[in-house]
């Protein structure tokens, strides 16, 4: 029975079924993957010079928190996100600007003057004045703004904020 022409026809239909199914699956399935992962593949870049106010406002040697906000579009909704940086002014009026986001699990760190370190409230990570890890789980020092991302114009401090 397996050599009758009927079986040939059956195999032919099987082939066509497979082909049509594969085409339909591909035409729907492949775009579907792109469709589902789409928000993760598209990011609006955000960058701007953020004014942090006059340099004199920042005491020498003491990290001072500065908060600023940026608005962002997620999908079709605008949200205003808040960001914090610690500004450390050095005696020669150069500055170190550190992000206040712990490099471990993104909690916000606080400056503890008694211990002269940044302490993360989540897992007790400690960072030094220049951001290096003193103890705890963080994999790397606090993110800092490089020298070309910091500028002082007419006594006012600016940082170049960039979010990819």
């Amino acid at each position: 029975m397996s050599q009758t022409p009927h079986m040939g026809r059956r195999e032919f239909v099987q082939l066509v079924t497979g082909f049509v199914g594969a085409v339909m699956g591909a035409v729907i399935g492949l775009p579907a993957i792109g469709y589902l992962i789409s928000p993760a593949t598209k990011r609006r870049q955000s960058e701007a010079w953020i004014p942090l106010g006059p340099l004199e406002n920042y005491p020498v040697g003491v990290p001072t928190l500065f908060n600023f906000t940026r608005s962002k579009v997620n999908g079709w909704e605008k949200t205003v996100n808040s960001y914090g940086v610690f500004v450390v002014r050095h005696p020669d009026d150069s500055v170190t600007v550190l992000s206040n986001v712990c490099t471990h699990l993104a909690c916000r760190v606080n400056w503890v003057p008694e211990n002269q370190w940044f302490l993360c409230p989540c897992h007790d990570a400690q960072f030094g004045l220049d951001g290096q890890v003193l103890g705890g789980p963080p994999p790397r020092p606090l993110d800092s703004y490089t020298q070309d991302a910091v500028k002082i114009e007419d006594g006012n401090l600016f940082i170049f904020f960039k979010e990819a």
Partner: peptide, 21 residues
């Protein structure tokens, strides 16, 4: 039913799919 009827159904379904896309 299989394969004779299914074959016709398949071709029509495919045509409809192409039309929609």
């Amino acid at each position: 039913f299989w394969p004779d009827i299914i074959y016709k159904d398949l071709l029509i379904s495919f045509a409809i799919f192409i039309l929609l896309v």
